[in-house]
Design a protein around this nucleic acid. Structure first.
Lengths: 160, 160
DNA sequence: GACTCACTACTCGGATACCTTCTGTCCGAGTTACTAAGG
DNA sequence: CCTTAGTAACTCGGACAGAAGGTATCCGAGTAGTGAGTC
């Protein structure tokens, strides 16, 4: 089980966008993080499709958060990039083989599927409890106050 | 993010092995579930490597659980088949780019990594709280008492 | 001086190759039960 | 009848192809800003 590496990039980008007051191009975000511009663009497209960020076209275009950072949860970002389908998929093998359970007895998911779904539910609940604003706060706490402001001003500077 | 499909097979096999009193060959387990024998053998090898089941060679060989069903958690099985590495891997992109955080300031994981680790911790805790014995109990509850006993006797019958 | 228009440069968006990982399969090494012969 | 050697069948275990999804990339469609030309 492995999560798409783009999730990390997308999360960092969302935190960074918190400090921006104008649209930020994907290329500039890639430059800031020193990652592939083309691939990061793909992740931003996913965020745009999910409605978390809004794309602005044209010369001074870029991406902007559509809502306040405290209204975007980690789960939103993860699901936007990595998809909403659960990691565990029950293939109903109980209905196969010589001792198959008849379909009429399968009104609810089997115990295994229920347990796995519960675990994923706990995972999602944990992700939903944290917002981008919380992450921004942790950055300020870790790197000192004003760290995000510095990033915000760097984003406004003309690119090197 | 997608979990290996073999996890489902392995879990079902562990539950089934609860009802067996003698070693069960992988081929017979595959026959019971109507899945690829070769591939299921691969999953059983993973369980054996993790020490959850013991392999018995020879003519009447097969696999046996090494401990009581109440001492094997879902997490044990999932990690045996799917690996122990976490789904989210922090690549420390905060240490890259023009505004990189100096390494001496990175004594602890960044906020994003901490939040993702917390979510996976919740996931693992949920999986750890359920045992194979619990699953066996849910089978008896769903399919009626004696269901597992029937499977156990089928396993003992000479294969068709 | 103000307005209009065409142009340029920059943006996003989706369609296109490459590569790692998962899926599925095969054959060889080793062990056990069985059979038959001999004492 | 018991012992013993040999045989045969069945088991696991790891090494080998094929397919799918993630990774990385590129080029086209569209839009905002810019400058010249005109009234």
């Amino acid at each position: 089980m492995k999560m798409s590496g783009g999730v990390e990039w997308a999360l960092h980008c969302c935190v960074v966008l918190t400090a921006a007051s104008e649209p930020v191009p994907a290329a500039r975000l890639a430059q800031l993080h020193d990652v592939s511009p083309s691939y990061l663009a793909k992740q931003m497209q996913a965020l745009s499709r999910a409605g978390l960020v809004q794309s602005v076209q044209g010369k001074t275009g870029g991406y902007v958060l559509t809502r306040g950072a405290e209204e975007i949860t980690l789960l939103d970002v993860v699901q936007a990039v990595d998809g909403t389908s659960p990691a565990f998929v029950c293939t109903e093998i109980r209905q196969r083989g010589p001792l198959a359970t008849p379909p009429e007895s399968c009104t609810k998911p089997c115990g295994i599927a229920r347990a796995m779904a519960a675990a994923e539910g706990a995972w999602r609940a944990s992700l939903k409890a944290t917002t981008i604003a919380d992450l921004a706060g942790s950055v300020e706490r870790d790197n000192g106050p004003g760290a995000l402001a510095g990033v915000g001003s760097w984003l406004s500077e003309p690119g090197a």
